[in-house]
Design a protein around this nucleic acid. Sequence first.
DNA 1: CGATTACTTGATACTGTTCAATATCCGTGG
DNA 2: CCACGGATATTGAACAGTATCAAGTAATCG
Lengths: 239, 239
Amino acid sequence: MLDIVTSGKSNGAGVRAMPCGRGTATCSLASCPLLEDLGNRKSYGPNSVVFFEGDEADHYFLITEGVLRGCKQLEDGRRQINRFIFAGDLIGYSINPRYTFTVEAVTPVSLIALRRTSVENTAEGMPCLHGAIMRAVLCELDEMQDQLVTLGRMNAEERVARFLSLLAARSSALPAGSAQIEIPMCRNDIADYLGLTIETVSRVLSRLKGEGKIAMPSCNRIVLKDLKSLELDHGEIAA
Amino acid sequence: MLDIVTSGKSNGAGVRAMPCGRGTATCSLASCPLLEDLGNRKSYGPNSVVFFEGDEADHYFLITEGVLRGCKQLEDGRRQINRFIFAGDLIGYSINPRYTFTVEAVTPVSLIALRRTSVENTAEGMPCLHGAIMRAVLCELDEMQDQLVTLGRMNAEERVARFLSLLAARSSALPAGSAQIEIPMCRNDIADYLGLTIETVSRVLSRLKGEGKIAMPSCNRIVLKDLKSLELDHGEIAA
DNA sequence: CGATTACTTGATACTGTTCAATATCCGTGG
DNA sequence: CCACGGATATTGAACAGTATCAAGTAATCG
């Protein structure tokens, strides 16, 4: 398992810088161009599993292409998607010897699998790796904390608006005030990410469309026409 | 600010080992007994603020005594408590140059404030500090991920039951099948932690009492009489 | 082109919120 | 010691938002 080596030749997709959390810090591994030599490049089709909750946590994974979901499942089938994972993200760290959530591909995915032991052995010689892991963990933590506010204190419309804004920030540069974004995940994934049902997600999107705040050329392509009115709904200010 | 030095003399409270997340790993700074010499010991009364969201993130804090809450506030006053913080916990790390949430004392609190720059300078000489920070971050991440499931997919009764179980695990050793726990925080804090209202929290507790699953000698003292039936409600198993 | 999956829309039910009243706890002062 | 007052917690009734169940529409794939 995890041994499909495909030479260190970069396919050009590379690793792009990734905005994270509140914006100022960068969480990029661009400063480690030799990273691919340490790991195995692998590909995954939509809905295939990178690792299961409970698997031995013996690899880190650096995503070079595609979108994934990290999720937890309850015995009765309820599912919570803790985060969506994008190109540039590094995953696989855990305080436990086993992964505490499942990661599946949403779109076709390319990644570099790094054996944890080899990362830890080479880390002294490559301090950027230690730093990259720490930055990735801190970025995820920041994201989780914001998501807790979303799930704990926001209504359905605010949740969906926030999701669209985040996706827009991830997807591409934003033209001022408006943006067209590609929605790579299905309604079910969005619902399980936002703690809602697919029906509610669908209804909210329809309502936003009716109010002219968004347009939907197709069901996985959304134009944010009034970005400000969406973003203003989820600003945060300490008292 | 943050300069009330009170000699390195330990007051006996010390730093106790802290269980975290899924149980196997330990996140203790017990292996760094000289830590107090690096920082300033400070005390906080209930409801006083250790740091505000937006403050410059220039210190780590090692809690030696008491309980705190880490929270975020929306402009309109809605509040989400991301976590409760206990003795043994290390806080203050952030990917951003500023703290992204506010930390306030729930009970009287004692802690050691460590200037971030001095931690980072001495870290090479004290690798246990780097490790401790990483473990603390990973523990919190694990806790946040579980909390996302709670807020996104659990009903009020499940949320309260989970809260009680977690608190029981934190408070003290569990006699088999039953445990009396001290609730240090008010209903409002519990509600803001669980994404509910105080009324709902109160109602759920009353219902659990009516069903004989808990007893309440006083409103901040709860006996878990049927721990199993509480815990079974929030087990997690991957498919 | 038919079948399957994904998405949308509608009607109804239910959980949790909101608003309001009452009860309990706790510290203070008579 | 008890009375008072403020804060905290509990309980009740009406309401609102989201889930559930069900049907219909659109997109996708063989």
